[in-house]
């Protein structure tokens, strides 16, 4: 036997009371049930009645909701939800065609770009791996060159593990550390500048590691000694 929720019991009781009371006779009164005071207020405030509000004109009621529409309160849901609700509805557009068309074009453009680029530029394939022949310089993939650049400044444990680890943890914790609820750019100048500094820091390190490091990972100028970089 399942337990009947409290509010359902309450509602059932209310319905029983209503059925028993004689004042229910107003059921056939039609559109006249909306008090004049309420109608006046509705007109004055420009707001509408949710169930139905009507100006009874010759027995044919006209909706008095927003835009003259008849709007109805469907239900009041009692239990909690994980969905966020707001007081006013949000206008939306259909995914088809508005979003799908954009996605299709974007995907097509990217495919075309990749196709043409791959046609024109060949991926590097150097000589077969040779353990006895260390190329000079030896460079990591470009996205790790910032780390390799750090290696020239710090102890390997700091540059290779501690700093990137801290960066990753900081990224993961960012939403929990940032207590500012606003997403307006003008309200979050601090976080924006922090992120910009972080990005520029890595970009500069990666660019130096990619283009300004030559044999022996020594500093060079690409326009003087050439580029020591393979993608």
């Amino acid at each position: 036997m399942t337990e009947i929720p409290e509010h359902l019991l309450k509602r059932a009781q209310a319905a029983r009371d209503k059925a028993a009371s004689p004042s229910d006779a107003s059921a056939s009164e039609g559109g006249d049930r909306i008090p004049d005071a309420l109608l006046d207020r509705t007109k004055a405030s420009g707001a509408g009645a949710a169930v139905v509000a009507a100006a009874p004109a010759g027995g044919v009621p006209v909706g008095a909701g927003p835009g003259g529409h008849t709007q109805r309160l469907l239900t009041v849901v009692k239990s909690g939800s994980i969905q966020e609700a707001k007081a006013a509805p949000v206008d939306k557009v259909h995914t088809w065609p508005h979003l799908l068309a954009v996605e299709f074009v974007a995907g097509l453009a990217l495919t075309a770009f990749l196709f043409v680029f791959s046609w024109v530029v060949n991926a590097p394939l150097l000589q077969a791996a040779d353990f006895n022949n260390t190329p000079n310089p030896s460079k990591a993939p470009w996205y790790f060159l910032g780390l390799q650049e750090l290696l020239t400044m710090f102890h390997p444990m700091i540059a290779g593990v501690t700093l990137p680890g801290m960066g990753l943890v900081a990224l993961i914790l960012a939403p929990y550390l940032d207590r500012n609820a606003s997403n307006k750019p003008e309200d979050r100048k601090f976080m924006t500048s922090m992120m910009t500094m972080f990005l520029i820091f890595w970009a500069v390190l990666t660019i130096i590691g990619s283009f300004f490091r030559g044999p022996g990972f020594n500093f060079t100028f690409p326009w003087r000694d050439g580029i020591f970089f393979e993608l």
């Binding site: 590097p124 394939l125 150097l126 000589q127 077969a128 791996a129 040779d130 353990f131 022949n133 260390t134 190329p135 030896s138 460079k139 990591a140 993939p141 790790f144 780390l147 390799q148 290696l151 390997p156 540059a159 290779g160 593990v161 393979e230």
Partner: peptide, 15 residues
């Protein structure tokens, strides 16, 4: 498994 791959990964895994 060319020179680029081998030594890039050597550098990476040394870290």
């Amino acid at each position: 498994w060319d020179q680029l791959a081998l030594w890039a990964v050597t550098v990476g895994t040394n870290m």
